[in-house]
Amino acid sequence: MESTLKIQNLKCGGCANTIVTQLSKLIGVSMVTVNNDTDEVHFNYNSETELKTVKKRLSELGYPMIGEANPLPKKAKSFVSCAIGRLNKK
């Protein structure tokens, strides 16, 4: 199955790199792409369990879904994820 999720706090290629790296590590999740222009994450998954896992992981990284709470700690996490993504960018 395929899904595209609209997320918050997506700022740059560093953010995108972190998201792709972290979601690609999840079992049952593949073909992860991030569109910075539309704030969207697109991926393939095997079951609803993986979809829930992806949403949870994105939120943990500081990128909650559009419409979800986005308190200051989540925004701060996204800046950390962004910095890590920039450092690990190839």
Results as ranks from 00 to 15, higher is better:
Met1Phe: 10
Met1Leu: 10
Ser3Asp: 02
Leu5Ile: 15
Ile7Pro: 09
Gln8Asp: 00
Gln8Phe: 01
Asn9Val: 11
Leu10Arg: 05
Lys11Ile: 12
Lys11Ala: 15
Cys12Trp: 15
Gly13Thr: 04
Cys15Arg: 02
Thr18Asn: 01
Thr18Val: 00
Ile19Arg: 00
Val20Pro: 03
Val20Gln: 10
Thr21Val: 11
Thr21Trp: 09
Gln22His: 01
Gln22Arg: 02
Leu23Glu: 03
Ser24Leu: 04
Ser24His: 09
Lys25Arg: 14
Lys25Val: 03
Lys25Phe: 05
Leu26Tyr: 01
Ile27Ala: 00
Gly28Tyr: 04
Val29Asp: 04
Val29Glu: 03
Val29Trp: 03
Ser30Thr: 03
Ser30Trp: 02
Ser30Leu: 04
Thr33Gly: 06
Thr33Pro: 01
Val34Glu: 05
Val34Lys: 13
Asn35Ile: 06
Asn36Val: 03
Asn36Gln: 02
Asp37Thr: 14
Asp37Ile: 11
Thr38Asp: 14
Thr38Cys: 07
Asp39Glu: 01
Asp39Ala: 14
His42Asp: 11
His42Met: 12
Asn44Pro: 02
Asn46Lys: 15
Ser47His: 05
Glu48Lys: 02
Thr49Ile: 07
Thr49Pro: 01
Glu50Phe: 04
Glu50Asn: 11
Leu51Pro: 08
Lys52Val: 12
Thr53Glu: 00
Val54Arg: 05
Val54Asn: 03
Lys55His: 05
Lys56Ala: 10
Lys56Thr: 14
Lys56Asn: 06
Arg57Glu: 06
Arg57Met: 09
Arg57Cys: 03
Arg57Tyr: 10
Ser59Ala: 14
Ser59Gln: 12
Ser59Pro: 09
Ser59Phe: 05
Glu60Phe: 12
Leu61Met: 09
Pro64Val: 02
Ile66Leu: 12
Ile66Trp: 13
Gly67Glu: 10
Glu68Thr: 01
Asn70Phe: 09
Asn70Thr: 06
Leu72Phe: 07
Leu72Glu: 13
Leu72Met: 04
Leu72Val: 04
Lys74Asp: 06
Lys75Phe: 05
Lys75Ile: 01
Ala76Gly: 06
Ser78Met: 11
Phe79Asp: 12
Val80Asn: 06
Val80Met: 09
Val80Pro: 00
Ser81Gly: 09
Ala83Arg: 06
Ala83Val: 12
Ile84Tyr: 15
Arg86Cys: 13
Arg86Leu: 15
Leu87Gln: 07
Leu87Trp: 13
Asn88Cys: 08
Asn88His: 13
Lys89His: 09
Lys89Phe: 08
